[in-house]
Design a protein around this nucleic acid. Structure first.
Lengths: 231, 231
DNA sequence: CTGCTTTCGGTAAAGTTTTATCGATATGGA
DNA sequence: TCCATATCGATAAAACTTTACCGAAAGCAG
């Protein structure tokens, strides 16, 4: 399994593909429960509203291999996706900021299923410290740095107020964090070796609303010019 | 302001750009508070860790106009972004599903700032119905359809359990919803004219973790081959 | 006033991601 | 057994996004 020194680097899988894989995974799991042994790109694509060719390319990226006229073997393909997304190797993560959103994340049971173990939250508010949410303790913010270091935590969820975002980030970075899942609407300044995944909810909502506006204009124009809808 | 019949359709702004605009907006607001009248792409890019050329192209897309050697006028540019993202035209939205995440969204004060008015939540759980979160009522799920119709709600936030996602979606669609901000890990089947913005948290976390793994492999390889880090 | 430097706008190139095309393979039915 | 068809894998084209380049405008210093 260990690649030879100059093995062709297992080409990084594009982010859009990574984001789609969980959907495939879920659907294929459903097929397994339905006692199906194989699933084709066509089926997947139809169920998920995607392009079959895209599905095929995505699955290829995971290393899954299909059989013409039959499709992909359910078990093998599930394994390939799990392997690809790292659902196996479980990993401890911390949450910083136990406000409404933070507590919702604390209580969310889904992380465990994909190999993450959210072990504790940290907050600066003494009123919250000491409480538990879904069995996970909320600890004093001052202990964050030390625990990240000692427990070799690599990923942290950042759900603090925007004003504190950069400061907390600096603390995390100094403590040796490797990746930050950022729920604040702030661009974090981090050293190049630290990864940040932004989850800017306001931005997403803005996008949706803008696209809605666009589609309104478009369909209005279409109705004026009599352009028919295509199938 | 009304475009002539065959005016060049104000080219749809690419989604990546839309997602970056809120960051520019926030930073430029900061500049205004600091009593600065102009801001350059270079400054913005440096502050946000982006490419200056990208920033310029993004701002151009909003219609903002800059002056060589000076930059973009703070007030005008803020207006352009507001106009572009529709921060002005406020819009009522509904939340469906008042679980942990749903309640966190209910309590989130940020929506109002970008022109959204989250007026009510809906839930099937009688224990939750009747309660209020941050002054927003949680109503019976059975009233959803009627209220969407009567209030001409265009955007709904979907934060129900995955198992209910498609069913609730169908209800929303029948009631005339135009766009769904989907927090469930499900691909929703909707008619073409209905927009869906997926916010798949598990998928995002998987991406982060996978990229972390990649970067580990890469830096390991680099250290073996002695490839130096670039500035 | 002249020349230097910063920054913009427009156009072009490079890089990514999505979609299309085509031959090969395996299955099921004639 | 042989043919029609569904589906895969590979390669190529198209679309989209990011990055680079270059000339022009505008401020600043001498």
């Amino acid at each position: 399994m260990s690649p030879s020194p100059n093995a062709p680097t297992p080409v990084a899988i594009p982010e859009p593909t990574l984001k789609r894989l969980p959907y495939y995974y879920k659907f294929i799991q459903g097929q397994r429960e339905a006692r199906r042994d194989f699933v084709s790109c066509t089926t997947l694509a139809e169920a998920l509203g995607l392009n079959p060719i895209q599905v095929r390319k995505d699955l290829q990226a995971t290393g899954a291999v299909g059989r013409p006229k039959v499709g992909y073997h359910v078990e093998t393909t599930l394994d390939a996706i799990e392997e690809c997304l790292g659902y196996h190797n479980t990993q401890d993560i911390f949450l910083v900021g136990a406000g409404h959103l933070g507590q919702a994340l604390l209580a969310y049971p889904g992380f465990a299923e994909i190999g993450f173990n959210l072990v504790a939250a940290f907050d600066a508010d003494p009123a919250k410290v000491g409480r538990e949410v879904a069995g996970k303790p909320i600890l004093e913010a001052s202990r964050l740095s030390d625990l990240v270091r000692r427990m070799h935590i690599q990923i942290a969820i950042l759900a603090v107020p925007a004003a504190a975002a950069q400061m907390v980030t600096d603390t995390l970075v100094r403590a040796g964090i490797r990746a930050i899942w950022n729920f604040t609407p702030t661009r974090l300044a981090v050293p190049r070796e630290v990864l940040v995944q932004d989850e800017n909810l306001l931005a997403s909502l803005s996008v949706l609303s803008k696209q809605l506006e666009n589609s309104r204009v478009k369909s209005h124009k279409e109705s004026i010019h009599g352009k028919p809808e295509e199938l």
